[in-house]
Nucleic acid binder design. Structure first.
Length: 466
DNA sequence: TGAAATGTTGGGGCG
DNA sequence: ACGCCCCAACATTTC
């Protein structure tokens, strides 16, 4: 009669949970434990939105466990201390957890494994980073060959079903899951595994087939919006990959198939960045490209504040930042546009953007977020070249053609004619008055002139890059 | 998963 | 009819 601890970190689910399955295989009593680690959940990289999403997720998980005869034990503190105490308290002989590859997690788990019986099981990614290398164990640093290798790997195992029953657990103290003050705007993301599964099957049965054509349209719901669930493991990477495979097989037209394959490609980007962070943990603080470590950032604090608040005077940028602040999520195309604007137009260090996104995003993941920021800044692996500067006006016209995305998130521009929606300062003054939006009063004038800013950033990068 | 600058081509207006 | 110019449309180069 062995007792084991199922230590839950970013795997808030009962389906396809390899750590839970391993615990149930080896132990007759399995105690589900979540530890609120202040180093993670009270840090500068987490804001109230993701914390609230986590706490809601814990509540949902606890409810699912109770339906199966168990419950969730929540404790707070340093994981090593908490687990040491718990092992003594419960006589647990093993701790089972899903391996997390972020630098902090690896250091934490390494230390714990020195004194406690910690068994790590894969699951954050479909394949562990050690499998995702070149023949000689060298990591890939370019996406395309990485994805080719990824697609050539042996078939993934099938996702595991949730256990029908969980063993009862002994009387144990558990922290009452704190209630976060309500997030300012009702977040469209309901926490929990059930919601994630519902969204996944909806997506994989219909809009995945239009994904290739609509995924960049900020005014449409063309993306899966599953990232928050993947972030906390309310959905496993393997479940997502299987859904894309099944959709690809069910595809009736080349277009449908392309949609499913394009979405799978995005999942492979996630694995790529997880692997990059595993092999190059220094990217969390430093440019991957050594020759781009001395960019003369301007770091103007007023401009940074305007960017954060969605008050730059560029409608697409402002819509995106306000969407982020209100919902904890931002459309992927908008992430690229806002990141390009911060790093290129404002010449503000990508680390400022990385940190703000980590604070605000429900899906804020150290690997993907860092990868995305370094990609845009041009400092990362397989990154966009430094001279690739997004034009926020053209991007708006292309990917929000009617301006509906702007109108939704920047209501003061709601009545601006489509012709001017992405460059409202070009409206004749009479029109500005007519639509109740005088630029410089109700809505800010652009804080930089894009054409001027573009020349400035090219000058700043020149000489640094090759 | 860019955009601007520069180059080329060809149709049409016009003397 | 012919040559010249203009410029839109597209292609290529450059950042």
């Amino acid at each position: 009669m062995k007792t084991g601890i199922w230590w839950i970190r970013r795997d808030l689910r009962l389906t396809d949970n390899q750590a839970l399955a391993e615990a149930l295989r080896q132990a007759s009593t399995v105690i589900p434990v979540f530890i609120l680690d202040p180093k993670l959940w009270s840090s500068d990289f987490v804001g109230p939105a993701r914390l609230a999403f986590l706490l809601d997720g814990l509540r949902t998980l606890d409810a699912s466990l109770r339906e199966r005869g168990s419950r969730l034990i929540v404790r707070q503190g340093d994981p090593l201390e908490v687990l040491t105490f718990l092992c003594q308290e419960t006589q647990a002989e093993d701790i089972f957890a899903e391996e997390d590859y972020s630098p902090y997690a690896r250091q934490r788990d390494g230390k714990i494994a020195l004194t406690l019986p910690l068994q790590l099981v894969p699951g954050v990614t479909t394949f562990p980073p050690q499998m995702l290398t070149k023949a000689k164990g060298e990591p890939y640093t370019v996406f395309t060959p990485f994805s080719r290798m990824w697609r050539s790997l042996p078939a993934l195992g099938l996702p595991l079903p949730a256990p029908e029953h969980m063993p009862a657990i002994p009387e144990l103290k558990s922290l009452e899951i704190p209630t976060q003050p309500q997030h300012p705007t009702a977040s469209p993301f309901k926490a929990g595994e059930q919601e994630a599964q519902k969204r996944l099957s909806n997506f994989a049965n219909s809009s995945i087939f239009d994904y290739a054509g609509t995924r960049n349209r900020m005014d449409l719901d063309g993306t899966s919006q599953l990232s928050p669930y993947l972030r906390l493991g309310m959905l496993s990477a393997r479940q997502a990959v299987w859904a894309s495979r099944e959709a690809s097989e069910a595809a009736e037209t080349p277009k449908d198939r392309e949609g499913a394959e394009t979405w799978l490609n995005e999942l492979i980007w996630r694995e790529f960045y997880a692997t990059i962070l595993y092999y190059f943990p220094s990217v969390r603080g430093t440019a991957f490209k050594a020759d781009l470590r001395d960019i003369p950032w301007r770091n103007d604090s007023a401009e940074l504040a305007a960017w954060k608040a969605g008050q730059t005077g560029y409608p697409v940028v402002d819509a995106a930042m306000r969407q982020l602040n209100a919902t904890g999520w931002m459309h992927n195309r908008a992430r690229m546009i806002t990141a390009s604007f911060l790093t290129k137009d404002l010449l503000i260090d990508w680390r400022e953007g990385e940190q703000f996104f980590m604070q605000q995003l429900l899906d804020g993941d150290p690997a993907s977020n860092n990868g995305g920021w370094q990609w845009t800044a041009g400092t990362g692996t397989d990154a966009a070249p430094y001279f690739r500067v997004f034009n926020p006006i053209l991007q708006g016209r292309k990917f929000d053609p009617e301006g509906n995305y702007v109108r939704l998130w920047v209501p003061e521009l709601a009545k601006v004619p489509t012709k001017f929606i992405h460059a409202p300062w070009e409206m004749p003054l009479e029109v500005q008055k007519q639509v109740g939006c005088v630029v410089g009063q109700r809505y800010p004038s652009p804080i930089v002139d894009h054409a001027v800013a573009r020349k400035r950033v090219l000058l700043a990068f020149r000489g640094l890059a090759w």
